[in-house]
């Protein structure tokens, strides 16, 4: 069997290239499913090998949050150490109970973490993010989501607490960002306490940079998926051109329709980002 039969239509029978046959398509599907299953199994048997590395800065998130508030003429939020502790407790609990949600499987709500550290609020809110590589992308994603944006630009909030924690979630190493907003039940007291609250040593806002070398399942899946789709589109195009040059009409599925669907899928994959918000 010569190599060109794999990539070009048969010169006598004009049958499709082997790599475009339905059998080949079935193999691509199965191999891709196998890749996904392998990631899932690897995540369970060797937690921490898979994941993303990030350079998210706590202070940058606060700064970007305040930039968005300032744009709307809202009062800036100040970092509150108590709320920081609540956010850290929430992140630690997400890793401990292995969940990605506002409410823990054990029933703990975001408010429980605030109350437990002694933050008595009248208004409070929470934004979550994971798998982002930098602070700017996190805030952009939140601002693009109406419900998260509502928290960021809520004029009722005075305090902000942030936790940027590395850990293993569902078998994958990740960086969780917990952003908590609130206003204490005594606004006058809160304002009076602000200078003390914002006196946080610079070390508290050090970059949380993960330097682990990891296999990023998102990047691998995206690269393989995009390569596979591009490869099929190129083969379809070559097949169409070769048949046209030969002046042959073949009864088969329609290449242009396949190319249209695969191109839309390719565009979605190309613009996909690994970050998730909640």
């Amino acid at each position: 069997m010569t190599l060109h039969k794999w990539f070009l239509p048969h010169k006598d029978t004009h049958k499709k290239a082997h790599l475009l046959s339905w059998e080949a398509l079935l193999i691509y599907v199965l191999l891709f499913v196998l890749l996904q299953v392998s990631f899932s199994v690897l995540g369970n048997i060797a937690p921490g090998i898979l994941g993303t590395s990030s350079s998210i800065q706590k202070q940058r998130i606060i700064e970007l949050t305040n930039i968005e508030r300032a744009k709307l003429g809202l009062a800036l939020v100040s970092e509150n150490q108590t709320l920081d502790r609540a956010a850290e407790a929430k992140a630690a609990n997400m890793f401990a109970e292995n969940y990605w949600a506002h409410f823990a499987p054990s029933g703990k709500s975001p408010w429980d973490f605030m109350i437990r550290v002694g933050y008595r609020f009248v208004f409070a809110g929470e934004n979550l993010a994971k798998n982002f590589s930098n602070s700017d992308d996190v805030v952009v994603a939140w601002m693009n989501s109406p419900s998260h944006r509502e928290n960021i630009i809520n004029g009722k909030y005075r305090d902000i607490g942030i936790a940027v924690e590395d850990g293993v979630l569902s078998g994958q190493s990740t960086t969780l960002v917990v952003q908590m907003f609130g206003t204490t039940d005594n606004l006058a007291l809160a304002v009076a306490e602000q200078p003390e609250i914002t006196r946080i040593p610079a070390v508290a806002s050090l970059n949380t940079t993960s330097e682990k070398v990891l296999v990023d399942p998102f990047k691998v899946t995206k690269s393989i998926g995009l390569s596979l789709i591009s490869f099929i589109v190129i083969l379809l195009l070559v097949d169409m051109i070769v048949l046209r040059r030969r002046g042959v009409l073949r009864i088969s599925s329609h290449h242009l329709a396949h190319m249209a669907v695969l191109s839309v899928a390719g565009a979605a994959i190309l613009t996909a980002s690994p970050g998730n918000i909640l």
Binding site: V29, F32, L35, G225, I229, L262, A268, I269
Partner: peptide
């Protein structure tokens, strides 16, 4: 194939 790849990525 499109569904499987998109599910894995998105």
């Amino acid at each position: 194939l499109s569904i499987v790849v998109l599910y894995g990525v998105l």
